[in-house]
Design a protein around this nucleic acid. Structure first.
Length: 376
RNA sequence: GGGCAGUUACCAAAGUGGCCAACUGGGGCUGACUGUAACUCAGCUGUCUUUCGACUUCGGAGGUUCGAAUCCUUCACUGCCCA
């Protein structure tokens, strides 16, 4: 994987770049739709490619390991062959599940023991195992196995947690460098900064991560319960330290506003379940603000879903129709909302890129932020 | 014509003398959701009130009782059975 830094915004830390992988290129800043279990929920890859214009999607090591399992993925020839997505894939390591499945896991120095949420069986994830599984999945970008520290952790917990993440990182790097890709194309490994909301920990973590000298770096442990302002502050601190000539990936973030704020602070890659999950739950993100499609006010609004939208669903379907589909619990509702939201997210980062290149990002961003927060 | 059962909030349906503005579903309304255990979760859903609380309700009318959705009388309507 290579990264070419193409433009720096004169007014901010925002930048435009180009990532090249064996499965194609990614123009940054980019949003990566989440496809946890080898599918971006409710969306066909055809739509993802042609309408949403996704350039890279996510998969999840923990979920894919449990189902369909490493053996099936290897038999298939890797995740790309298995699910038919021939563009880049990034896999999360399972570190987020250490956070989200707290009740079902135990941590120790060696790794994390999970109790499967599917059948209760026990499984040990170590930094080495996480690399191996991701080798089998065959993702273009694989993530270090970390502990995603909760946003409300106290200093002592955060410090210990960060130490564990760093020791796991060193092991992961070592194992990655000692192993080969399984399917003939190259893979790269991103380390993850932790440190919760504590500036000195974040600095220490960013320095340790940068010292690993990987192709790209990630910022984790944000948007997990801490105040938004803290998140922005941590991004600034960390990006001062992470190298400029490598992509920076802010994991799990976020709202459209979060993404623009992240871009302004020098982040290149984002992923989040919001456009898909919130979409399935009836919420639409648009350039004019957010809409709860279940609201009664859309009942007889026969205007297009989003007159400024770029997706075909924005023109073909009306607000009243989508509301009807949600109220009736029709599956099509979730498909339309997911397609719309993802197309909007990809439009948003695409516009950000254009404005960075044009040199008026900050001005454009200010106007967008104001619009995005409105409740329609 | 006779017998039996029933009538509770938007719908369905509990409650059968005080703890009942009334269980529970559904429907409706509103909100939440940030590296996906999520087509999920939470709140509200008689009226007025921010809360406390006040007021009006359980087919209609009348009655018994300190007190009735619950007991009695009667009327209306619905369902089933026998003629």
């Amino acid at each position: 994987m290579t990264f070419e830094l193409q433009h720096n915004d004169p007014q901010s830390k925002a930048r435009a770049g180009l990532i090249t992988t064996d499965h194609g290129q990614i123009e940054t800043p980019i949003f990566m739709p989440v496809g946890t279990v080898a599918s971006v929920k409710a969306v066909h890859f055809h739509e993802l490619r042609e309408d949403i214009k996704a350039q890279i999607i996510l998969g999840n090591t923990y979920h894919l390991y449990l189902r369909p399992g490493v053996e099936i993925l290897e038999q298939a020839g890797g995740l790309h062959k298995f699910n038919g997505w021939d563009r880049p894939i990034l896999t999360d390591s399972g570190g987020f599940q250490v956070f989200s499945l707290t009740a079902n896991r135990k941590l120790n120095e060696e790794g994390a023991t999970f109790r499967s949420h599917i059948d209760g069986s026990k499984h040990l994830f170590t930094p080495e195992r996480a690399v191996e599984i991701q080798r089998s999945i065959g993702a273009d970008i694989i993530m270090a196995f970390d502990e995603c520290t909760p946003g409300d952790a106290d200093y002592n917990y955060a410090k210990k947690s960060m130490g564990l993440t760093h020791r796991w990182l060193a092991r992961g790097v070592k194992h990655f460098d000692a192993t080969e890709p399984k399917y003939g194309y190259s893979q790269t490994f991103f380390p993850i900064v932790q440190g919760c909301v504590y500036p000195d920990l974040r600095r220490q973590s960013a320095e340790f991560v940068a010292s690993q000298n990987r192709d790209g770096n990630a910022i984790g442990g944000l948007a997990v319960g801490e105040p938004t302002e803290k998140m922005y502050e941590m991004i600034e601190i960390v990006n001062e330290i992470l190298p400029e000539n490598k992509p920076r990936y802010l994991m799990g973030v976020g709202t459209p506003q979060n993404i623009l704020e992240g871009i302004e602070r020098g982040v290149d890659m984002f992923d989040c379940v919001m456009p898909t999950r919130n979409g399935r739950n009836g919420m639409l993100f648009t350039s004019q603000g957010i809409m709860n499609m279940r609201n009664e006010k859309w009942k007889n609004d026969f205007s297009p879903l989003d007159e400024f939208g770029t997706s075909y669903v924005d023109r073909v379907y009306t607000k009243a129709y989508l509301r009807h589909l949600f109220i009736s619990k029709e599956l099509l509702a979730m498909q339309i909302a997911s397609i719309h939201n993802l197309a909007f997210y990809l439009w948003l980062v695409g516009e950000a890129r254009k404005h960075i290149i044009a040199g008026d990002f900050s001005q454009w961003k200010r106007g967008m932020i104001e619009q995005l927060g409105r409740r329609l």
